Amino acid sequence: MNRAAAAIFLVVVCSGCPKRIEFGPEGLIEDPEVLFQRTSRAQANVLTLQGDAKIRVASPQGNGTLSMFVAISRPGLVHLETSDFFNRPVAALVSDGQRFGLYQTEGNVFYQGPASPQNVSRFLPVVLPSEELVAVMLGQVPFIPAERKTLTLDTGKRVYVLTLYRGEVTQTLHIHPKYHRVVRSEVRGRPGYDLAFEDFKEKGNQVFPTQVELVAEVAQTELRLRYSDVTLNAPPDLTLFELTPPEGARVVEVDERGREVSPAPPPPEGGPPGA
């Protein structure tokens, strides 16, 4: 066999060989509870994020892509600013976990009220509590409270498959065998959403997904967030989470469902309030 034929033979043979799965320093994990605890710790190491991103939304209400500045901090601090294709400001949303404020440049209006899921999720086609929104944007998966767990190794996809069970509800987690980070989460048995995390990068001591995808099949909605330049675990700039309306903006108070609240009438002259 000449050298060219030998080289072709080796390529064909090696292309059919499965790639070796690279595990962490502890090697193959066979106990589902051990893997669950290590995965929980691995994703909990990211506490804050600040930087730039692109957000793409596809939903029955419409499709679109916006640039976004993001500053978030666990458990529920949120600061999101969106701009259009020409980098013109569109809106800014801020929440300190208790109250929220949303400024829309169109109309020069500032909405404020309780930090309910409906209010904090105004940028999104799905409704999430602020703590859950922050977790997902930090590349973390909210877990169902499991009654039992099972674990297998998918050698084809080269991931652990950890399944959580609670009654009729299941959550299937595909977990990176080396970094113990969730790369996919699927919840079945109740309304919810699937998550996928891609393009993991090492940033200091952290391994972080620079792409987050959320799919809610019932709502026919898909959201994709791609980070381009972010800083992790820096002390948060608390001024970014201040709920101060811009000067000259019309301020509108809303309730927990985002409905405008009529201002209370002024007290009658010469008498106590309510007289």
Rank of each mutant, 00 (worst) to 15 (best):
D154V: 11
L102M: 10
K201T: 04
T163E: 15
A216F: 00
P267H: 09
A44S: 14
D194F: 02
L49N: 04
N87F: 12
E213V: 13
A115K: 02
P32T: 09
L151A: 11
V136Q: 06
L124G: 02
S228I: 06
G192P: 04
A44Y: 03
P263S: 09
F100R: 01
G27Y: 06
A42K: 02
L223H: 02
A264L: 15
G274F: 05
L93E: 04
G270T: 05
E253T: 12
E106H: 10
S130K: 01
P75L: 04
A58N: 08
G24K: 08
Y193L: 13
T155A: 13
G270I: 11
L195D: 06
N2I: 01
Q43F: 10
H180Q: 10
E213M: 14
G76R: 12
R122L: 08
D255Y: 05
P89K: 09
D154Q: 06
G62T: 10
G274A: 12
R259E: 14
P245L: 11
V215A: 10
R56F: 02
L138H: 03
V252E: 11
Q50I: 09
K19T: 09
P114D: 07
R226G: 08
L195V: 02
N2K: 11
R250T: 15
V34P: 02
V94S: 07
E217A: 13
T231H: 10
Q118H: 14
D96Y: 11
R259V: 11
R181S: 01
Q50K: 14
R148L: 03
L102I: 04
Q98P: 00
P18F: 10
R38V: 08
G62L: 12
V187K: 01
S95V: 07
I29Y: 07
P266Y: 14
A92R: 15
A58W: 13
L124T: 03
I144F: 11
S116E: 11
V212I: 15
R122W: 08
A275H: 10
N233A: 05
V215W: 08
P273K: 04
P60E: 01
P89V: 03
F200S: 08
Q104V: 09
Q140M: 10
G24L: 08
E253L: 15
V161P: 04
Q104C: 02
P89G: 11
T82Y: 00
P209V: 05
R259W: 05
K178D: 14
A135F: 00
F69K: 07
L47M: 11
V207C: 00
G64M: 06
A4Y: 10
D229T: 07
Y193I: 03
M137P: 00
A216Y: 04
L223S: 02
A71M: 04
L138M: 03
R20G: 03
E260N: 03
A196Q: 13
Q98L: 12
I21D: 07
V127H: 00
L128Q: 05
S73Q: 14
G258L: 01
S121P: 00
V161N: 04
S73K: 02
S116Y: 08
E260H: 03
F143T: 02
P32I: 07
E147A: 14
L28S: 09
V12G: 05
R250M: 07
E132A: 10
G274E: 13
L151P: 04
E30W: 06
G258N: 03
Q98N: 14
K201G: 01
P273R: 10
V207K: 14
G62S: 10
G51T: 05
C14S: 13
A264E: 15
T221Y: 09
